[in-house]
Amino acid sequence: MVSLQNLTFAWDANVPVLNIPAFQMEPGERVFLHGASGSGKSTFLGILGGVLRPTSGEVCVLGEPLGGMRAHKADRFRADHLGIIFQMFNLLPYLSILENVLLPCRFSTLRAAHARESRDLADEADRLLSALGLPRDITHRPVTALSVGQQQRVAAARALIGRPALIIADEPTSALDTDLRSDFVHLLLQECELNETGVLFVSHDKSLSPLFDRTVELESINHIVRREVS
């Protein structure tokens, strides 16, 4: 599903951030990625998301050589196969909840087709929102009127719509309080399990790791020689 070989990445030629000889994910596997702040987790996800280009090495996602793809192909690939959740501010404030959830279907006909398989788009969005625990009666509110926890549920529904093969989540729970976190992750993983969607989940919060199939320390796969700035 995901396989890396000799990946290196540097924002600035003198300061390597990533040097990962190998990393694999099985289809449908749910991986918890842990690492210190500034260790390069978000950068790593950017490469897997096809937004950043590796400096060298091979990146294959779903068997496609994402690292060497032309930019617009990588963008198309992301729209078709990846669902992405950020730490916060996931939503466009001027779109409705429904419009926010359906955004991937606007950029990818594949996602739209998947979402339409059993019901129409709006119903599928509704289904996801309630599966993720968003109360039904608030789906017509403007997104700016939602709590952070509710916003993250909308973001998760957006990532999940149209059955992408892989969900990439960059600390989506760090703005939530502890009770909500495991509840949110639980519902997210449940929904992923239904479609055998792979998950790469980044967090500082080790208490969430038991919910996943596997935990990876970024420091243990990343072999950069850190040059401390003194």
Binding site: A79, D80, I84, F89, L91
Partner: peptide, 15 residues
């Protein structure tokens, strides 16, 4: 800038 990152994440091209 946020808005742009969100659009990129759902598949918008830089163009």
């Amino acid at each position: 800038r946020r808005e742009m990152a969100i659009l990129r994440s759902v598949g918008a091209r830089a163009s």
